[in-house]
Amino acid sequence: MAAETQKKEILLPNERKMSFKERWSYTWHEMKRNKMCYIMLAPFMIFFLVFTIVPVCMSLPIGFTDFDMAHFPPKFVGFQNYYTMFLEDDVFIGAIRTTLIFAIFTGPLSYVLSFFLAWLINELHPVLKTVFTLIFYAPSMAGNIYFVWQLIFSGDTYGYLNAALTSLGITTAAIQWLTDANYVLICVIIVQLWVSMGAGFLAMRAGFQGIDKAMYEAGAIEGISNRWQELIFITIPSMGPQLMFAAVMQIVSAFTVDIVGRSLAGFPSTDYKVHTIMTHAFDYGWIRYEMGYSSAICFVLFLAMLICNNLIGKLLGKYMN
């Protein structure tokens, strides 16, 4: 009995059961002791709060209002915005479909592609590694250079693609790549894939570089006989953290496809073919100044991203363990 009570007393303060008041006074004491930490954290956190946390959190309350930036205070309309969005706004329903199509291509496909490319690049000579990393990363670094695709997909015979197809005898007339509803989606997907080798790709490249070579030697002794087996049994399991990071980057780029489509196919695009949720929010936010509705759209987008992130985290976590 005596030993037990003694044991209880040695427990650290935060492990011991404390009354509410005690816990608060302890926390307060700790906070005062670590004053310097908060001071060092403050400059970043102030900007972080104002420009990231507040905007994201604010999209919920403003989503319940009718707000045009001119009339204060915003008029409370309850669930009207959400009701309109899901039941009356056909364009929004179309935008969900388009976003999902884009998400599949620029999400999983681009993810697998960047993993595959990082893997292949890793097999090469160090100098070639650097060169290829640069080549694949360059498009996402080069800002607004995707305007060049407008020259390639140009609808008249001055367009590179039309000229090439005509001279090869595949087509006889110029195809309106960016205004024909049949082609515009696939064109924008290609460009989106082209710019998608960003930070996630770099993380994967670094992840491959960081794998211990001894693992492969051990694997060879254990009877792994080809590159595919190496990939599945050694490489992927030891790259978990990088894969997770790349997944987050991919979710962001997959759900926010907007500017590429808008600048290539014009706004609004033919039949709303490349009209994504982001484009819809842009439309209501910047052009119609219906900030309440735009906020509601943004909130739905945030929610979708969070859910997607959690799901992928759980999936990858399961696979890694």
Binding site: F51, T52, P55, V56, M58, S59, I62, M69, V248, I251, V252, F255, T256, D258, I259, M278, A281, F282, G285, W286, M291, S294, S295, C298, L301, F302, M305, L306, N309
Partner: peptide, 13 residues
């Protein structure tokens, strides 16, 4: 997840 692209409109407000 919430880079400047997504929060642009809300940031503007």
């Amino acid at each position: 997840l919430f880079n400047s692209q997504v929060t642009y409109i809300m940031q503007y407000i």
